[in-house]
Amino acid sequence: MTELSATHFLLLSAALFIIGMVGVLTRRNILVIFMCIELMLNAVNVSLIGFAWELHQLTGQVFALFVIAIAAAEAVVGLGIVMALTRRADTVDIDELRQLRE
């Protein structure tokens, strides 16, 4: 553990990912859940970068770039849905949004 290695990155990635996951599982505000999902995506990027650095590869960075682009797209659409939801149901509490049941 004296030299920086991919293990450090992986541990950080795991920690961030699991914090994000716990957030998704426990929070009720759809916006916070949204942020937690971003956190999980970001955690994946950390591990990708760590591998890329350790293995002298650029593939990891390329994939991280795509993840960022997709996260941006997801954010745009997700927030659009949130806007439409609040306009229609006037709430951001996922426990009150039960249309998926029908």
């Binding site: 998704v24 599982l25 009720r28 996922i94 426990d95 949004l97 039960r98 249309q99 998926l100 049941r101």
Partner: peptide
């Protein structure tokens, strides 16, 4: 099984 609660689905995934 279909409760309509997103949280439950997320829980199942986890």
């Amino acid at each position: 099984l279909q409760t309509g609660l997103v949280a439950n689905y997320a829980l199942a995934i986890a």
